[in-house]
Amino acid sequence: MISSAIRLICERGVSATGLADLLSRSRSSRNSLYQHFPAGKSQLVEIAVREAGAAMDVDLCAAMDGATPTQGVGLIVDDWKRRLTTSDYTRGCPVMGAALAESEPAVQSAAADVFGLWRNTFATAFVAGGLPLDRAGALAGFVVSAIEGAIVQCRATKTTTPLDDARAELILLFDNHFQEQR
């Protein structure tokens, strides 16, 4: 059920993902849903967003581990370009979809927590690269925003150009920030 919820949120967002869709995609019964998620769809989606975010954080950590910021972010951008093109631009980020679910406060809170997790992952890598913590945190938040925003634009325009643009501008920014530390 969780993996089905993640896929549906990637494709449709939270609001456009109905309970019937979740049950059909996961081949589960309503009884089974409520047995595992007593609070229903909202609880399932919240858990799905947290799990998707944690899995993506593992990928972020792997990309940033031992890499320069430019190399690590490049790996992340390349992965998103692959995800978008192989899905014909139909699968976005489930965390972004959850962030927009204003009628679901617990789901939106889960998205905020995941964005914070990713920000911390990037900030840790940037501190390891020599930036002071306060600057690393601000830069990390900007990187998350730039990549997430580019993903949304890619889906709308059906091209990976926004991710290429984000990478190019982030490289310039990294050159400036990390050059100062040398």
Rank of each mutant, 00 (worst) to 15 (best):
A62Y: 14
Q179E: 11
T85E: 15
V127T: 05
T121F: 10
F37I: 01
A55Q: 07
R27C: 11
S24H: 10
L172D: 13
S145E: 14
G66D: 12
I76W: 04
T124F: 02
H177W: 10
S4Q: 04
P94H: 13
V143K: 00
D134G: 01
L44S: 02
L22F: 07
L60S: 02
A128Y: 02
K158N: 08
T90E: 13
R91Q: 14
S103R: 07
C61T: 11
V49C: 05
T159I: 10
H36T: 03
A67K: 07
K41R: 15
T160P: 13
V152E: 11
V152P: 09
R167P: 02
I76M: 12
V73A: 05
G130D: 02
A106K: 10
L44M: 05
Q71D: 15
G97E: 07
F178I: 07
L133S: 08
T68I: 07
G74T: 06
I47G: 01
Y34E: 01
T157Y: 12
F115H: 00
D88I: 00
S3A: 05
L23D: 09
M96R: 00
A166F: 14
A138F: 01
P105N: 04
C93K: 08
V14Y: 08
K41F: 08
A98W: 12
V127K: 00
R7F: 08
L33M: 06
G130T: 01
A138E: 02
L172E: 13
A112M: 13
L100E: 14
L133H: 08
L8Q: 04
D113S: 01
S15Y: 06
I171S: 02
A55E: 14
L133W: 02
N176D: 07
P162A: 00
V14Q: 03
L117Q: 13
V58L: 13
K158V: 04
S87T: 04
V152R: 01
A136P: 04
L163E: 14
I151D: 08
R91Y: 14
G92A: 07
R25W: 11
R30M: 03
F37R: 00
N120H: 12
G116A: 14
P69C: 05
G74M: 02
R82F: 15
T17N: 08
G72W: 09
V77Y: 09
P38Q: 09
I9F: 06
E148M: 07
G72S: 00
A128W: 07
A128L: 07
E51Y: 02
P94L: 03
A5V: 05
T124H: 09
V14A: 03
A140F: 00
L22M: 05
A140K: 04
F178R: 01
S103H: 14
P132V: 06
L170D: 09
E102C: 12
Q71S: 08
G74Q: 13
G149K: 03
V127E: 12
G13S: 03
I2V: 09
S109R: 13
G66T: 10
G74F: 11
A67D: 03
S87I: 08
A52W: 10
D134A: 06
